Amino acid sequence: MNINNLKDKQANKEKLVMLTCYDYSAAKIMNQSEVDMILVGDSAAMVMHGETSTIPMDIERMQHHVSAVVKGAPDKFVIADMPFMTFRQSVEHGIQAVKMLMQAGAHAVKLEAVDGHEDLIERIVQSGVPVMGHVGLTPQFVNQFGGFKVQGKDPVSHDKILADTLKLQQLGCFSVVLECVPATLAAQVTRETNLITIGIGAGCDVDGQVLVTHDMLGFPSAFNPKFVRQYLNTEQLFKQAFDQYAEDVKQGRFPSDKESYL
């Protein structure tokens, strides 16, 4: 899968499918699936490292996650999140972070918001790296928002989100994630830009959808947003397997002769 395939699907009105992934084993399974794009998200900070927000994620850990995912899913289009502050210090610092992610095997990078790093976005695009924007609820700004809240409901924030997406298009981005915004606003962005629009809590009138894999698989989490549909109760399945294993060990049923060297 490459960027031209994605644009062709958009032109043909084929819905695009994106999920997050952070490790080699899950990536191998995802590589066999109908998923088009993999986001190696800074959400790894929360679902893989137990943090309460994405802010603690750093570029070195992100680089390791990207490298593992790319090895496991060579047939997918892999986008890497740029962690908190890696694109807010200077253009040179941001370009170095992009270099690390791309050399780890990513096909594109994703940056949250727009204001203050327009020059960096333009430089990244000019360097031949596809850029995905991210507007609406941008988790790295959670402290400014006062929590994980829907964005774009009032006229001022509505117009700001629309203006930001138009700016992303002008700067050369190929796509944008619209997170936790009214469905009508997401539909408007999809109509009024040529960006590939990927929604998460943004209704169905977008070019594609993304979810955090751990959320849709039902891994335990204190964060249960309205926009998640759970396709599996992994917590229950894992616990059942762990308890069955423990019981088999305690009762002497494991290992059997089949699992032993005789």
Rank of each mutant, 00 (worst) to 15 (best):
N31Q: 08
N31V: 09
N31G: 07
N31T: 10
S33N: 11
E34R: 10
E34W: 09
E34T: 14
E34F: 11
E34A: 13
E34N: 14
V35A: 03
V35K: 01
D36A: 08
M37D: 15
M37T: 06
M37F: 15
I38H: 01
I38R: 01
G41V: 03
D42Q: 10
S43F: 05
S43E: 02
A45V: 05
A45S: 15
M46N: 13
M46S: 12
V47A: 04
M48V: 10
H49Q: 11
H49D: 14
G50A: 12
G50T: 12
G50C: 12
G50S: 15
T52S: 13
T52D: 15
T52A: 13
I55Q: 03
P56H: 15
D58S: 05
I59N: 02
E60N: 12
E60L: 11
E60I: 10
R61V: 10
M62Q: 13
M62N: 03
H64A: 15
H64L: 15
H64Q: 15
V66E: 00
V66G: 01
V66F: 02
S67L: 13
S67A: 12
A68F: 09
A68Y: 09
V70R: 03
V70I: 13
V70P: 00
K71T: 07
G72T: 01
A73E: 02
P74T: 07
D75R: 06
D75F: 10
F77K: 00
F77P: 00
V78Q: 02
V78G: 00
I79L: 03
A80F: 04
A80G: 05
D81M: 01
M82I: 06
P83A: 06
F84E: 14
M85A: 11
T86K: 15
F87A: 08
R88W: 15
R88E: 12
R88S: 13
S90R: 07
V91H: 06
E92I: 06
E92T: 08
H93L: 13
H93F: 12
H93N: 13
H93Q: 13
G94R: 02
G94I: 07
I95E: 02
Q96C: 10
Q96R: 10
Q96A: 08
A97E: 08
V98I: 04
V98F: 01
K99E: 14
K99F: 11
M100R: 08
M100D: 10
L101Q: 09
L101Y: 03
M102E: 00
Q103S: 14
Q103W: 08
A104I: 10
G105V: 09
G105R: 07
G105C: 08
A106G: 04
H107A: 01
V109L: 00
V109G: 01
V109S: 03
V109Y: 00
V109Q: 01
K110H: 07
K110S: 04
K110F: 04
L111E: 00
E112P: 01
E112L: 03
A113C: 13
V114T: 14
D115L: 12
E118P: 14
E118L: 11
E118S: 07
E118V: 11
D119I: 15
D119Y: 06
D119H: 09
D119N: 07
D119Q: 11
L120H: 02
L120W: 01
L120M: 05
L120I: 05
L120P: 03
I121L: 03
E122Q: 10
E122K: 14
E122C: 12
R123S: 06
I124K: 01
I124Q: 00
I124N: 02
Q126V: 13
